[in-house]
Design a protein around this nucleic acid. Structure first.
Length: 783
DNA sequence: GCATCTAAAGCGATG
DNA sequence: CTTTAGATGC
């Protein structure tokens, strides 16, 4: 084990405390009373209950600065954990800005996982790993589990690997090693869950690998079994700060409690009303229990909101009031005036998308006393990602620029994982999982049979797959085209491996060489699907990302934890994302579509977790509303197509919880009268509102009409956009029958021209009408 | 060994 | 409806 003092992170990070103390402390001046209290109470346990938009990050960064300036701790003695890399990055820059100087050494400001990797590399041998262990992504985990399931003669059809993975994840979130899984879980996964968990852990150790859950679990295990190690860190980390404490799971909680066990200088920041990750193992209980865990804790409430109008806050408060067992907070603001929260019902999901599209266009120009807004200021927040499609389709048709936030993250993408597998294999030839992944990608004529031969050979000689492959070739066990290709792959890998030591080739050049010579780049160049250009683009991004690292090895060690889906595109765009992805963000204008019972609150959530599930959904509604600064529009549709089936739905029960005084009900032309929704059906809301709801909705002709027609496919109502800009110039470049390419739908032929829109029969996506400027001539594809 | 068809499942998402 | 994994056929 390397000595404590060797650790990079523990040295060279000092910033002269005296030099800073001499500076004035403007960071305290623009804090309000509560924020200031939270910042100045440096010693002992502190719970900062920070509502949405109350300047939480500001207080947190001021606290770090205060610790540094007051000389309580050096930058490398502060442990500061966040959940996302984005949050970590933001805190780093804000601390730097507040100090008025860039500060290199905040090595322990990062995500739980990033910090645990750093620690675990130092102590890996205590849990049977080498310090250069690899971190598996979900894909690798799943493949491993499938192998185990097959080896145990379990029918994967009846007992899917995904289920087992979910189970193991949950156990790890609760900090249960295989031997600690309680008997109550014994029946899980056909009574073989624990057994397979044990095998999985053993296999990980063989592979010198661990998964994300292990990063924390191993550290907890080490701290519990080696008090001397724990004590070192308890002493070293003089102050601990935790962001988004309501999202911590049991393993993270134990980890924190162990580290804070000595001095108890721990400050947890969170908002129980924004706990929306229960299904991922987060325990709201952690935050509710804080004062019991840390007796004498100072609890500070940040309740003054600087983000939203009073109407928006009132609406959010009205909804969240429905939850039990809250720590209790009431947001308030000095701001006056503003628009009420708007509520509108639609016939179906497409109508909803159409209306929101038009609304966005008129807000762009400014309307009814609302100033013009950039598209960057507007966001659509949906409950489930499949709701996004309706908006994408509509926005493509009317030519409204949008960006989808979330989606598959950069490093989870197929091409990135493939490329990384090549790099992994070059750096560590014993990485069998990487070998399996790329041996026949691109296609080398090595199918099941050849791969089984390699596996068998490797087992026979007790060597890695790559070594087994080499032996298999030498002994002529794999013949024909595949054999030759495999020989070439092995030789290439060996050659690239030697090049890692070559001073004349930078690791970026090497990465390019690997991708080119393996045929991987060519594979995508020859691919004619619409995704291919984007994938090549991503590979370029990947190589660019290498720049910040010393070598391939260094890059790989960090990549699983630091890669973000971050491509800065030019031009203003409206954002579309899930409510989960929206946490921590804010927008002047927010649309919240799809407020229908079953969709939101989600049926699945309620089925799985009952009242707890419903309460988490309610917090999600609270998070959604509080993202809005000026204008918040909630909508629901009477009919929606789910998995191709038309289904009718009732307005969300959360709509009844919106306080009427702060809501303006909009009535779109030609639709049933607006009004409150499902109160009667659930007995929610006040008596008056409930009766009003019955009168307005259930007995209204419009509602009855809606009910009657709900089983039929609704006729879409073509209505031209008020703000249509016809770009005939773009259309003139095309003619009937021409073959064209579209970013989203791929290749197709023009079958009609109408105004500025083209009707195109796509090869894969069917016939669609799209705006001409999103279409390229076939020979003008922007690769 | 690979391409093409067919059946079944998909609901929320960070490291 | 869409995607994807597995089976089937060539």
């Amino acid at each position: 084990m390397s000595s404590f003092d060797d650790m990079d992170a523990f040295e060279g990070a000092s910033l002269s405390a005296r030099a800073m103390a001499a500076r004035p402390a403007p960071y305290l001046d623009d804090l309000n009373e509560a924020q200031r209290a939270a910042v100045e109470q440096l010693d002992g346990p502190v719970l900062m209950l920070a509502g949405a938009g109350t300047g939480k990050t500001k207080a947190l960064t001021a606290r770090i600065v205060h610790l540094l300036v007051s000389g309580r701790a050096r930058p490398n003695e502060i442990l500061s954990v966040t959940f996302t890399n984005k949050a970590a990055r933001e805190m780093k820059t804000r601390v730097g800005r507040m100090l008025g100087q860039q500060i290199e050494g905040m090595p322990w400001l990062g995500t739980f996982h990033a910090i645990c990797v750093k620690l675990l590399r130092r102590h890996a041998e205590l849990v049977g790993l080498k310090s250069n262990f690899t971190i598996l992504d979900t894909d690798d985990q799943l493949r491993l589990l499938k192998q185990l399931i097959a080896a145990n003669n379990i029918d994967e059809k009846r007992w899917p690997a995904r289920q087992l993975l979910g189970l193991i994840d949950q156990w790890k979130n609760r900090a249960w090693v295989p031997s600690k899984v309680p008997a109550s879980e014994a029946s899980a996964y056909n009574h073989r869950g624990t057994e397979l968990y044990e095998q999985y852990q053993a296999r990980l150790r063989e592979l010198n690998a661990c998964d994300f859950g292990d990063l924390l679990l191993h550290m907890v295990t080490i701290f519990q079994a080696h008090p001397d190690v724990l004590e070192q860190y308890q002493r070293w980390f003089r102050y601990i700060l935790v962001d988004e404490y309501q999202d911590t799971n049991v393993a993270q909680y134990l980890w924190l409690r162990l580290l804070a066990g000595g001095h108890k200088n721990i400050c947890c920041v969170g908002d129980d009303d924004q706990s929306i990750y229960g299904w991922r193992g987060a325990e709201v209980g952690n935050i509710l229990r804080f004062e019991k865990d840390f007796p004498g804790a100072h609890v500070v409430r940040l309740e003054q909101n600087y983000r939203s109008t009073a109407h928006i806050l009132a609406a959010a408060s009205g909804v969240i009031r429905g939850n039990e067992g809250r720590l209790g907070k009431e947001l308030w603001t000095e701001a006056e005036g503003g628009e009420k929260v708007r509520l509108i019902g639609h016939w179906d999901g497409e109508e909803e998308a159409r209306w929101i599209g038009e609304e966005i266009e008129s807000l762009q120009k400014g309307t009814r006393g609302i100033d013009p807004h950039s598209l960057d200021d507007m966001a659509i927040l949906v409950r489930a990602s499949h709701q996004m499609r309706a908006f994408e389709d509509r926005f493509l048709t009317i030519g409204l620029p949008y960006r989808v936030i979330g989606g598959p993250r950069f490093y989870e993408r197929l091409e990135i994982r493939d490329a990384m597998a090549y790099f992994r294999l070059v750096v560590s030839p014993e990485d069998d999982l990487a070998f399996e992944r790329i041996v026949n990608t691109p296609k080398r004529g090595l199918g099941d049979k050849a791969q089984q031969t390699i596996q068998a050979t490797a087992r026979e000689f007790g060597v890695t797959l790559l070594e087994g492959a080499r032996i298999a070739i030498d002994e002529d066990r794999i013949r024909g085209k595949g054999g030759g290709q495999l020989r070439m792959l092995c030789e290439n890998l060996a050659r690239w491996g030697r090049m890692t030591g070559d001073k004349d080739v930078t690791h970026m050049e090497l990465a390019e060489i690997i991708l080119d010579e393996s045929g991987y780049t060519t594979m995508w160049q020859n691919d004619k699907t619409p995704e291919a250009p984007g994938r090549l683009e991503n590979l370029k991004e990947l190589v660019k990302a290498l720049e910040g690292f010393e070598n391939l090895q260094g890059f790989l060690e960090h990549v699983a934890l630091i890669m973000d889906n971050e491509t800065e595109e030019s031009g203003a765009k409206v954002s579309i994302m899930t409510l989960h992805a929206a946490k921590g963000l804010e927008f002047p204008v927010v649309f919240l579509p799809g407020w229908e019972d079953g969709l939101f609150p989600s049926q699945r959530s309620m089925d799985e977790s009952g009242l707890k599930g419903l309460e988490e959904e309610r917090r999600l509604a609270y998070v959604g509303i509080t993202r809005a600064e000026e204008l918040c529009t909630i909508s629901f549709a009477g009919n929606r197509r789910v998995f191709g089936q038309w289904q009718s739905a009732l307005p969300s029960r959360f709509i009844d919880e919106l306080p009427e005084a702060h809501v303006e009900v909009l009535t779109p032309p030609g639709l049933y009268g607006g009004g409150y929704g499902a109160a009667a059906a659930y007995g929610g809301g006040s008596g008056i509102e409930t009766r009003a709801a019955e009168a307005n909705v259930y007995n209204s002709p419009g509602w009855k009409r809606l009910q009657q027609r709900s089983s039929q496919r609704p006729v879409s109502q073509p209505r031209e956009s008020r703000t249509q800009v016809i770009d005939l110039e773009a259309v003139s470049a095309f003619e009937m029958g021409q073959r064209v390419f579209h970013q989203k739908f791929g290749y197709g032929a023009i079958t009609g021209i109408e105004g500025d829109k083209l009707e195109i029969a796509f090869e894969k996506a069917g016939t669609k009408k799209v705006v001409a400027r999103f279409v390229h001539a076939e020979d003008d594809v922007p690769f």
